[in-house]
Design a binder for these strands. Structure first.
Lengths: 228, 228
DNA sequence: ATGTGATATCTGATATATCACATAATAACA
DNA sequence: TGTTATTATGTGATATATCAGATATCACAT
């Protein structure tokens, strides 16, 4: 029966994978704000966006609620909705924030990850090693991100996962640039291996420190290369 | 004219201070979920809540968006909305998360707070000392919270403020209990004073460590007293 | 008793209308 | 010309209707 299901896989069109209008609006506006197309202080109007996107104000309104919760915009009741200052937040400090939160995740993972989770992490780090040797850069970048996510998930704390997801949606463009640099790829693997070793040896303190330092070093390097 | 405005302050009914239906729903549901009235897996239905609260589904729907973004509930399109597992997240780990984020805030504050901000912090810690001497417990609790908020705000990073606000809305009940214990009040002041001194002396590393340790100690003490 | 198609019901998604506060523009008056 | 009152407009908040996917139930054939 399982084989039969696979045969019809191509027919699948589950609505769980289909994006709602609200999600489309969120992603569009978030991208426009973060990349500077909308600047702090700019006014966003429900009816204008509704016309521009050819949809009703309802998904626009719902998207505003989420973006406001993320701090990217601010709504004053019956006065207007404006892009907030958050979009100009210091990217280095965002990475420091990410560093301390992922560091804590590494600590918790070292303290309580199951043997199975450790095995999965080991498989992952080995996969990354193979990709590094074969110089398959695009795949390595993707697996690096997965490695970080696996650590965060293994911490088993939904609030930590949520905070990191919010940070991630904010600095996606930055992190991709960081990982693309060739030097980063090699140094990054070396650090990832040390992080995994610390987790495997059940050393919470060291795990936290290594992951914090790893993230803070990548931001320092990227900013150096930018001439900032 | 300014004096006149103050005289009539009690008449003020500015809509900026009036809670929207959406905000009322958010707070009601969040409280019900966090305190266990709604349990993970429970179904929340827009039309049921609409009838129960005597309002339309629109503010219910918007509240759902926010609570989902906070991770407290999960909506499956056209299937239903359910209370998530987040509400059962380990409270100690939440406090550890708060510790690392507030610690980072203290570090940034020590690094870049203006002289004026330092003066404000000094006024605040002195106010807290007076309240401690006079044993005005309720006011001291409130000023302690304000002290933490001043440090976070002085860090000048909107994302950090936002993360802490989300954590705060989640563990408000816990923190109030922590601060109410008499022992905590005295130990808490001592630690607050050390934190301020570290910030004042522009020592980012020490500031971060002290604030982290302060928060982690309070959670350890509270859990000890709970017999957990 | 079981399988299948048709129908009904449930639930969130979205569209549209209306309300209500805030501000701008215009008219009236001194 | 300046001030005040009135009206119009703009914007978000909320109510209500309808759509559309998902599931449950019913009716009928085998």
């Amino acid at each position: 029966m399982n084989g039969k299901e696979d045969v019809f896989q191509f027919l699948s069109n589950k609505t769980e994978n289909v994006k709602s209008l609200r999600e489309v609006v969120i992603e569009s506006l978030r991208e426009a704000i973060i990349t500077g197309q909308f600047k702090p202080g700019d006014s966003l109007k429900e009816r204008d966006l509704s016309k521009a996107m050819g949809i009703s104000t309802t998904p626009i309104k719902e998207a505003f609620r989420i973006l406001e919760h993320e701090g990217l915009i601010k709504t004053l009741p019956r006065k207007g909705t404006f892009v907030s200052e958050l979009a100009e937040t210091n990217i280095e400090e965002i990475q420091m924030l990410r560093g301390v939160v992922e560091g804590l995740a590494a600590r918790l993972t070292a303290a309580k990850a199951s043997d199975e989770q450790l095995k999965e992490l080991e498989k992952q780090i080995e996969k990354m090693e193979t990709l590094l040797e074969n110089e398959e850069v695009d795949d390595l970048i993707e697996e690096n991100t997965r490695f970080h996510k696996m650590i965060s998930d293994a911490a088993g704390n939904s609030m930590i996962s949520r905070v990191l997801m919010n940070i991630s949606s904010f600095d996606k463009a930055f992190r991709r640039r960081a990982l693309m640099e060739n030097k980063e790829i090699k140094a990054g693997y070396s650090e990832h291996r040390k992080i995994f070793d610390a987790i495997k040896s059940r050393n919470p303190e060291l795990s936290e420190q290594l992951l914090k330092q790893h993230i803070l070093r990548t931001v320092t390097d990227v900013l150096k290369n930018k001439g900032v």
